[in-house]
Design a binder for these strands. Structure first.
Length: 427
RNA sequence: GCCCUGAUAGUAUAGUCCGGCCUAGUAUGUUCGGCUGUCACCCGAAAGAUCCCGGGUUCAAAUCCCGGUCAGGGCGCCA
């Protein structure tokens, strides 16, 4: 297009004739001298205009896109220590005024307003920091697993029937058939892992539940792994390492973003994470005076209390009653009422859950019956394990949820670029 | 699906309890004018709000009552 230098680089190349381009953040007009603060993906720089003939006849407004030719110089007067002296300023595109959302945080626009104007909100430094970090989480997830012999695979998003049961599905017409949006890549992870051994995927999933909470969305992205010749403890170890890899990397490479979000104190938990069994959790709560008996699910307040009582930044809740987990969760050899399922609690919310899966067809049928389900409806699923399926286990991390914790957001909508909830379908 | 709270210029808020003094205040943005070095520049002026929608009470409603919609929070549902 044209030879452009990013602002970050231009600041280092003082004295050279360069062309920078970006958005006008604000202007300061002092009659015979004008200042333009320009932003691009790498940062901001002040353009100091002494020759007023350089300013195009249209005065510059916020978010106008301009191209500036000139040179960066060291400056004792400018606070940043560097400023840009223009020789030519050209408007590439004007912005309508005033802007419908505040992206400078002079007046903090509400989340709803920001989401309605999401494309503009992406120019807000805070929003940019959130998604820069999210991108880094994804990069680290892929990096760690690829480096450790896992293969990325792509599950389908249109499926013919429920893969887990439980959650409501979004139906959709599929030619002359009825299909659904996937609520989990579960079956496909397993089918890949029993041949490729170590696989992972990043995929969207949909839940048609009418929930309306700060931690739920109807469309989310999951980061999943599945591994053959593995039990629940094997994959819990993997999860710890993946999490620590991600957090250490972010602490190192996203310090600027963490600062913008006031999360500079991000703590990287030490491995191994504490393992708390479901039974222990019940006892902890009972000791604290909670009315709860073995077999009950935790209410939301009990969940919060439990996290406080355990007092760890990150920990596992494992060995759940079979009644509370999916039918494919492997029962323990020493107690078939308990399954090899776990949740990982990080920063006070559940960011990951996993299980060792049942790989023996007859046991699957038995567990389906135990759950009150008819094995005949699951025969095509069961069939996948009839031809030499090794023992295997896996887990999945909710991308938006882990982003929430790392960025310190309390509403998950902040952590989805274009969130889909009960009401919102646009943009 | 239930409970609580809210909805006022582009954005964000005051006013609402206790109806009239609101011809709706303030900040910021916008437009115009002034100012050689600002840095959230400053100073001056102007424009900008059928006070969410529908109904009711009243001489009088942003303000009280009922219904709806949407938003935020709590729970449920959901893993």
């Amino acid at each position: 297009m044209f030879d452009r230098v990013y602002i970050e680089d231009a600041k280092k190349r003082t004295g050279e004739n360069l062309t920078i381009a970006g958005w006008v953040v604000r202007t300061r007009d002092l009659a015979k001298i004008k200042f333009i603060v320009l932003r691009d993906k790498t940062g901001e720089i002040q353009i100091t205009v002494k020759d007023l003939n350089l300013i195009p006849s249209d005065t510059l407004g916020r978010e106008d896109v301009i191209k500036v030719n000139g040179q960066a110089i060291q400056s004792k007067i400018a606070n940043a220590g560097v400023e840009f002296i223009p020789e030519k300023i050209e408007i590439l595109n004007k912005s309508k005024q005033p802007l419908p959302v505040d992206i400078t945080q002079q007046t903090q626009s509400e989340l709803e307003t920001r989401l309605n104007w999401r494309f503009l909100d992406f120019r807000n430094p805070q929003t940019r920091a959130i998604f820069t970090i999210q991108n880094r989480i994804l990069k680290c997830f892929r990096e760690y697993l690829t480096d450790n012999g896992y293969m990325e695979f792509q599950p389908p998003c249109i499926i013919s029937s429920a893969s887990e049961g439980g959650a409501e599905l979004f139906p959709l017409p599929y030619f002359e058939k009825k299909a659904y949006l996937a609520q989990s890549p579960q079956l496909y992870k397993q089918m890949s892992a029993i041949s490729f051994e170590k696989v992972f995927t990043v995929t969207p999933i949909w839940r048609a539940e009418k929930f309306n909470t700060p931690t739920h969305l109807n469309e989310i992205r999951q980061m999943d792994i599945e591994q053959a010749f593995a039990d629940d403890e094997t994959v819990m170890n993997v999860l710890e390492k993946v999490l620590v890899h991600i957090l250490t990397d972010i602490k190192t490479y996203c310090s600027e973003e963490l600062k913008i979000l006031k999360q500079e104190n991000l703590k990287v938990p030490k491995t191994p994470f504490r393992r708390v069994t479901y039974t222990e959790a019940i006892e902890i709560l009972q000791k604290a005076g909670e009315e709860i008996t073995w077999g009950d699910d935790f209410s939301k307040p009990q969940e919060k209390l439990l996290m406080e009582l355990v007092g760890e930044q990150a920990f596992f809740l494992k060995d759940w009653p079979g009644a509370q987990k999916a039918f494919y969760a492997m029962p323990r050899e020493d107690n078939p009422d308990i399954v090899k399922a776990f949740d990982c609690i990080y920063g006070g919310i559940e960011i990951c859950s996993g299980t060792q899966r049942i790989h023996i067809p007859e046991l699957l049928r038995e567990r389906l019956r135990y759950k009150g389900l008819n094995p005949d409806n699951f025969e095509s699923y069961i069939e996948a394990f009839a031809y030499g399926a090794p023992p295997h286990a896996g887990w999945s991390i909710g991308l938006e949820r882990i982003t929430m914790i790392v960025t310190g957001m309390t509403n998950i909508r902040e952590c989805a670029m274009f969130p889909r909830d009960r009401e919102r379908l646009n943009p």
